[in-house]
Design a protein around this nucleic acid. Sequence first.
DNA 1: TCTGGGGTCCTAGGACCC
DNA 2: TCTGGGGTCCTAGGACCC
Length: 396
Amino acid sequence: MLGIVDCDNFFVSCERRRRPDLRNRPVVVLSAGSAAVIARSNEAKALGVKMGMPYFKMREQFGEDTVPAIAGDHDYYKAVSREVMKYLRGETPQLWQYSIDEAFIDLKGMHLDLKAWGERLAASVMEHVGVPVSIGIAPSKTLAKIASHFAKKHAGYNKCCLIDDDEKRRRALELTPIDEVWGIGRRYRVKMHANDIHTALDLADHSRSWLSTIMPQAVLDTHDELCGIDCIPMREEAPNKSVAHTRTFPKMIASREALATEISNFAASCALTLRRQHTLAGDVSVFIETNSYRTDLPQYHNAKSKRLSTPTNLTARLIEESLGLLNDIYRPGYCYKRAGVTVHRIVSDRAVEASLLDFDADRFEKLNKLSAVADRLNSEMGKRTLIMGRQMREKE
DNA sequence: TCTGGGGTCCTAGGACCC
DNA sequence: TCTGGGGTCCTAGGACCC
């Protein structure tokens, strides 16, 4: 058996931890730039506020004051997440953190009353860390996820739902629409419905061999998981394979120069992230796209990536390379709405031999020192104290 | 005249997740 | 006026090799 511990409405719960006045009322957390809703309290969900809803639409629909909206503070959420995970590690034999607000736990060989154990764990996380969690326990990760949804939705479970026999399993699957299953997104839902599969039980009860003729491997794994076979491995704790900085712009951008400024900022952010985690990136890619909601406007999107001659985390170098890529894909005559820079092939900065590191040792040394000084100033004196010339905003 | 095929690596795009 | 951001993995198909 295994379990999942899933924080309830995590970002909202973090805000409520430090702001008790937000408890027991509708409240949402907004994305960077306050563009869209990324977390909702139960009260906000009950009112009908949807995930990803644009902020302007929410205000339109619910009025300015009905649902307080808070600008997201990811640094704080990460800190709270660390507290939750640290506490859980002390209480469970083995834990794999799956996301900022979820962790799977191994319960193999635990012969105690799992339901009572889970209820106690949920209560003690709330008591010691101040964040509500729901727990699902089952023979596979996908079933545990489904169990945790029940624990979340129905107070009668007392924060923990256990699926430990076939009758409970079939009952839970019957009540779960296919698109609420972990691993089944929008595209697969369409395919499922086309094949008359509407609930999780419909999928589980189909033969694997028939499914294999029309569905990809990922769906076959989900099928097995729903039958109680644990077959989705947990990734070992590992450094991230990519770092991305992307934004939806509040206003559309047409000019190459303005876009170059944004791209420079994204590249600088990637470089900073890399330096903070003591890594270098070997690939950089840039994408730009128009507003797909504005069907009245001409559409264009493109992306391009490049293998760097040597891995880097230098701001100046990433900006230079990103602007080169932007130049290749930029087309005049379009209004751009979203863009970003992503770096891949990340390696530890200690793993790269000095001989591979640079071309011009002197120039490298200077750039490195410059980046380090900029990082220190910016962290001591507030963000954006010192920035590269190309990052300068036109308005500033 | 007849013009291989299997293995592997790589990449872009598609699918999913929170 | 205003429509999230940061990730992972899979797969199909091209390039290349022998």
